[in-house]
Design a protein around this nucleic acid. Structure first.
Lengths: 341, 341
DNA sequence: CGCTAGACCGAAAGCGCTTTCGGAATCAAC
DNA sequence: GTTGATTCCGAAAGCGCTTTCGGTCTAGCG
């Protein structure tokens, strides 16, 4: 199979290489006639420009990278999949590529970002779930690489981001529980070196204050975002002299574990102990009982993030691209009024 | 920030560009001394080769693409995430890139494959969940692009693949149900234009035969792979004059829906009606009751698939890379003996 | 001390495309 | 019929790297 290049087409058409290129790229200084002739022959021979050459010549990569969250198994988390899907389809429409890159280890992360920035492979990158202080963000800024973060770090004034207001969500979350009559509301949180972990904790605390509830460290557990961790944390807190009547979880997955622990204790989630999750996973419909949760409006966030990034690549000011969304409550069966004692 | 190129380094070092390149790439005709000197300066200036130039010059892309399954929302399916993660980490170790590409629409799929093959962007591709007759596979063969398919099409003799034996799994699946005493075993399947859909159906039918059970089309429903579809199918079959006592589902997600339909009918899954899923999703632990399922051994399949593909890119014969795995039964609570009538 | 091998490096030719620049051809207008 | 403006295209110079080829220099040998 003869590799069909510009040169080949040019020879075939009897015109210059540069002319073929300009015709294909719709330059205005090419007559309608030759433009059509060129395109026709190109299609006939199924010509596809060599992307590497094109990128080298133009200096634009027409590709963006998604930097996987640092912890392992992150991609299996639904939010990553959702995001990737949105990015992918949005990019595909413009003919751009989506690179998904994983740092092989936390140590090589900086290296990875640097390589991404200097190697010309991509014209922009999106990262998610930043730490409070995130090295990647600093690096990206330093290298002047357009980027957008899905989430925020503590200091988010000078870059583009797309985030859901976790502080508000958790503040309001204790609100719904308190309104139901709960006085002793536990919190299962995520590691606070993640900014979202910190923020959700902050929201919880502020929610307590707003409802004149006392903060009790005994019913606050910071742990990782797995169902097993949620289960262990719940089991422990249920054994307390004064167990909580409701549990607020930083992630749905933790909440799944919480439900299991409650049942294992012979109690009924939603009746004896309420559980409120966060994420809005569809799976939550199928838990026992179905999980009440605060859903991230992530339906088209991938597309939106992509659009924002593209705008920045086109020269937009990152600061103009900061979007804050609100979570919305999905009422299912795991939250109810406290049982009268 | 001065773009640091080979030329820049060469000038800095006072030696020729080509020499710098050869030093960096460990050519044997460079003295130990200059090699070290070059590498040191390269590191000092944080030199990263422009990948586009490199790829253009060498003709090798050092990247592979994952072609997303054609249906929408496919990426949210756990198997895709798992695969992507394995591919990504495996590739990262070698410094290769992972492209995830989505055809913007089914019509443009062929176009997408052709572009992938001709544009020099990648040196190999992996696709999953092929149709019985899959256009992409034909195209990939035609263009002589190294590839491996996750799954198989009907005619899988002449390319590389990695698959789980769905036929056997479903044959054995009706076996475990039959051994428990079930006589009326329903099947909720996936569209049979997907090869895996066909194969699972075939396995089910053969399982019926092996256990001297009659095949009744009334309790076979081919539908799509969502929980809602599973729920609807189950609801319908439960309303039959002779409802099934057990239901075999092509995917766990359908099984989740089946559980819901059974409960909605006032019955208890695992007691009155058994449900056996397929996929081995972790989330199945949290359904009500926990889902018994046949798990795909997908822990490191991404890595394995990557290794196989790389071997083919290195000139290996695709036919030598065909791996068939077996699903394993994960016993949870949704399967039990039929209730004596 | 002259000569032949290596060892090491410089020069240059691409890789396949884009894009600028200028020249030829065409056309209108005087 | 000449001029000036247009239109259209060819030529050529890169983009930043790799890789071949040949030349210089040193070392080793007789």
């Amino acid at each position: 199979m003869q590799r069909v290049s510009l040169k080949f087409l040019a020879k075939e058409l009897g015109i210059a290489e540069g002319t073929v290129s300009r015709a294909l790229n719709d330059y205005p200084d090419i007559s309608q006639a030759t433009r059509e002739r060129v395109k026709e022959v190109a299609k006939k021979f199924n010509y596809k420009a060599n992307q590497n050459a094109r990128r080298l010549a133009t200096g634009v990569a027409e590709a963006v990278a998604y930097l996987m969250p640092p912890n392992t198994h992150a991609i299996s988390e639904p939010f990553v999949s959702q995001l990737l899907e949105g990015l992918g389809s949005s990019l595909a429409k413009r003919g751009w590529d989506l690179l998904v890159v994983q740092a092989s280890s936390p140590e090589t992360e900086a290296e990875t970002v640097e390589k991404l920035s200097s190697s010309g492979k991509v014209s922009g990158v999106v990262i998610s779930r930043p730490y409070k202080e995130d090295r990647r963000i600093e690096l990206l800024k330093k290298y002047n690489m357009p980027f957008i973060v899905h989430g925020r770090s503590v200091n988010s004034a000078d870059y583009a981001w797309f985030d859901v207001d976790g502080e508000k969500a958790f503040h309001d979350g204790v609100g719904v529980l308190a309104d139901l009559g709960h006085q002793r509301i536990a919190f299962i949180g995520a590691p606070t070196d993640y900014n979202f972990g910190q923020v959700r904790l902050d929201g919880y605390k502020r929610g307590l204050a707003s409802n004149n509830l006392v903060l009790d460290n005994a019913i606050i557990t910071i742990t990782d975002m797995s169902d097993d961790a949620g289960e262990a944390a719940t089991a422990r807190m249920l054994d307390l002299p004064q167990p909580p009547t409701a549990i607020l979880c930083a992630t749905d997955t933790q909440a799944f574990g919480a439900l299991a622990a409650i049942r294992a204790n012979g109690l009924t989630p939603g009746i004896e102990v309420s559980v409120l999750g966060y994420d809005g996973l569809d799976f939550g419909k199928h838990t026992h009982p179905p999980l009440t949760t605060m859903a991230q409006p992530q339906s088209h966030s991938g597309e939106e993030i992509c659009d924002m990034l593209l705008a920045i690549i086109d020269g937009g000011n990152p600061v103009d691209y900061q979007e804050l969304r609100s979570a919305i409550l999905v009422r299912r069966m795991s939250v109810g009024p406290p049982r009268p004692q």
